[in-house]
Amino acid sequence: MGWKAIARYVTGTSHQEQKIPCQDCGNYRIFKDVIVGAVADGAGSAKYSHFGSELAVETVIKCFADINELPDKQGFTQPLSEMEAKEVFTKFVKEVITALKKQADHKGYSVSDLACTLLVFIATPEWVAAMQIGDGFIVMGSQDGEYQMLFKPDKGEFFNETTFVTSANALEEMQVQVISGKQEFICASTDGLEKVAIRFSDWKPHAPFFKPLEEYLRETDKPGGNDDNYINVFLNSERLNSRTDDDKTLLLCLFE
């Protein structure tokens, strides 16, 4: 029994043509029966957002590790209330902002040059706490096979606008939710896959998108191994690229 996970992010065809680096990033870390995952999408208008998204994800993972590795702490073995989850995620976001400002000062950038969205979840066999700043999505699947999206993506007041970690109102706009009960499958992604994974008419997950990904995790002993190229092939497929030219990220987790 335990978590299996994989994180992959690839450059969209539009960025390949313009020779722009992938502005997405995603990663995870497992501590016994607890997993933390984070994905970030650099702002297209921000010059160094590919560095910002990577640093944001790295900082979240480090914050989580620091909490879990303290010898006198129990980590996240006990369920969090929504208020406690908001406190934890606020700490994470403040650490991310500090790291981005430090990087900007060191390199002579404006911190807005590192702007990115951020989605984070902490999951145990019995509960999940999650947060989202900006667009993208977190979808969970329970034992009954139903998929649910935790937050409606933040699209801002105008087309193609969203909130970033570096925005003045980032913490005010941060969405937080705690879900009780066993959630077997979790998928976190940036907005590059929204149009193929989410039904915009009612913001419901498109089950035929998620089911093969869940089955892949169930059938794979060590996802992401040296001989495992399933997710990369999927993310770079012509069929997918014909529907989205943006950078694409998949962070997939399964508890079994």
Rank of each mutant, 00 (worst) to 15 (best):
V165I: 11
V165L: 04
T166H: 04
T166V: 08
S167A: 15
S167C: 14
A168M: 12
A168I: 11
A168V: 13
A168H: 14
A168T: 13
A168K: 15
A170Y: 03
A170G: 06
A170Q: 06
E172I: 11
E173R: 15
M174E: 04
M174T: 08
M174I: 10
Q175P: 04
Q175S: 15
Q175T: 04
V176M: 07
V176F: 06
V176I: 14
Q177Y: 01
Q177T: 11
V178T: 12
V178I: 09
V178C: 12
V178N: 05
V178S: 09
I179E: 12
I179W: 10
S180Y: 15
G181Y: 11
K182I: 10
K182Q: 14
Q183Y: 06
F185E: 05
F185H: 07
I186S: 00
I186F: 05
I186W: 01
C187F: 09
C187A: 12
A188T: 01
A188K: 00
T190A: 07
T190E: 04
T190S: 15
T190W: 04
D191Q: 05
D191R: 05
D191N: 09
G192H: 01
G192F: 05
G192S: 05
L193C: 01
L193P: 00
L193G: 00
E194Y: 02
E194R: 01
E194W: 05
E194L: 12
E194S: 11
K195W: 03
K195F: 01
K195A: 05
V196L: 02
V196Y: 03
A197N: 03
A197D: 02
A197T: 00
A197V: 02
A197W: 01
A197P: 02
I198H: 01
I198Y: 04
R199M: 09
R199N: 10
R199T: 07
R199C: 10
F200R: 15
F200V: 09
S201E: 12
S201N: 10
D202L: 10
D202K: 12
W203E: 08
W203Y: 14
W203P: 00
K204F: 01
P205E: 04
P205G: 07
P205A: 07
H206F: 11
A207L: 02
A207Y: 06
P208Q: 00
P208M: 04
P208K: 07
P208T: 01
F209I: 06
F209K: 03
F210W: 09
F210D: 00
K211M: 06
P212R: 08
P212I: 08
L213D: 00
L213Q: 06
L213N: 02
E214L: 05
E215H: 12
Y216S: 07
Y216P: 01
L217T: 03
L217K: 02
L217I: 06
L217N: 01
R218D: 00
R218Y: 09
R218Q: 11
E219S: 13
E219I: 08
E219G: 05
T220N: 03
T220F: 07
T220A: 06
D221K: 15
D221T: 14
K222Y: 13
K222R: 11
K222I: 14
K222T: 13
P223S: 08
P223F: 08
G224A: 10
G224W: 04
G225F: 09
N226H: 10
D227K: 14
D227L: 10
D227N: 13
D227H: 13
D227T: 11
